[in-house]
Design a protein around this nucleic acid. Sequence first.
DNA 1: TCAGTAATCAATAGATTACTTGATTATACG
DNA 2: CGTATAATCAAGTAATCTATTGATTACTGA
Lengths: 221, 221
Amino acid sequence: MSPSRRFKDEVFEQFARIGKAVASPKRLELLDILCQGPRTVEVLADQACLSLANASQHLQVLRASRLIEAEKGGLYVTYRLAPGVEGFYLGLRGLAESRLAEVEATTRAFLAARGALEAVDAAEVLRRALSGAVTVLDVRPVEEFQAGHLPNARSVPLAELRARLTELPRDREVVAYCRGPYCVLAIEAVRVLREEGFTALRLDTGPPDWRAAGVALAAGP
Amino acid sequence: MSPSRRFKDEVFEQFARIGKAVASPKRLELLDILCQGPRTVEVLADQACLSLANASQHLQVLRASRLIEAEKGGLYVTYRLAPGVEGFYLGLRGLAESRLAEVEATTRAFLAARGALEAVDAAEVLRRALSGAVTVLDVRPVEEFQAGHLPNARSVPLAELRARLTELPRDREVVAYCRGPYCVLAIEAVRVLREEGFTALRLDTGPPDWRAAGVALAAGP
DNA sequence: TCAGTAATCAATAGATTACTTGATTATACG
DNA sequence: CGTATAATCAAGTAATCTATTGATTACTGA
């Protein structure tokens, strides 16, 4: 075999390490979760519905291909995305959305089943959310809100929403968001809000998308 | 299992179709080749050093994940990249380059073995090539040159280089390029040119990279 | 209609991968 | 020092993937 053939084989073998890392749905879900910020193994396993051992193994695969980094602090190991990986993941996701009709079909079917199909343009909802003309709700857990949120959003985790409805003005439209297009918190939040008589819309993007799009996010409480 | 868990599983399963498609070094090499333009199965098999049947199977995997499209014309089937795939591939390659030290190590070792290690900055070489101050050689086969090339490049396929050296002015620096950073044609061309007394440099990017960077390419003869 | 060529299909063996289970390591804390 | 907890390791099985081989299909042109 020629030296240049061997060279190419070696180089593409390396490229394929990245490909193999993202060849598993569960590893992609782990990356998706890590786009929200660093997490411990336990939390990742829980959110992705994996056994602890299985999650640990997937995380080690991702780590071996350098897509994530681990940091040990006391009893816990915290994993975080490596630089450049968020953009790559969003690119992969976007390619799947644009090339694989099944993604949209599945999403539509799921939304339809909960009566959440919207006729409103996503960019328009984001514009309204940024304009200050509507009440913007971040329905993720508080820690995630604090790690980064839309400038004029207020944190009302889904679990607390019903109890805190009195905080919300009834004469303004509400826009709710969560982690991104495939997170279900905001869908549920909009359902609750409408049930209670609010005019509510879902913003079907999340902090990772906005960061990639260059939207300035706020942090802290 | 909850409906939202099922929904997520289905969605990430779809995303993983893209991941699985790029989990094989040979499929990545096929995508790399297809970045240069549409090709028949035979040509792809030949360039990627695959048996015809094996190449066909890999192409069908890529096609099933919608990364490439096939068009049958007479006896030949021509495959081409689907929209958005070139950018995704370059993103994956870039991530591998930035995250996997082995890629650079392998490349450096290969270049060093042929005495082709350069101390010149890649962006600077491209600037010179675009400036018109140097002779720019496109050493790929003529068809590829015609499909798209740097504005002031001239086509001198590597196979013809020695025979056509008299066409080149000896008092100007020569910059040679080929398909991209992992194509070896330009490396060889620079070796030949230096052997013959020219001052020659290699431009280690190619048409796909320039398209992605927004450089206007010329087409035709 | 028949021969020749491009491409695909089908079947297979060998390698790789995913998930489970039970054991083990490392750290914190009483 | 011993116990509890987070995480990893190790081994085994089932499933999946890769490359090869030989057969088959689809089209061209004599």
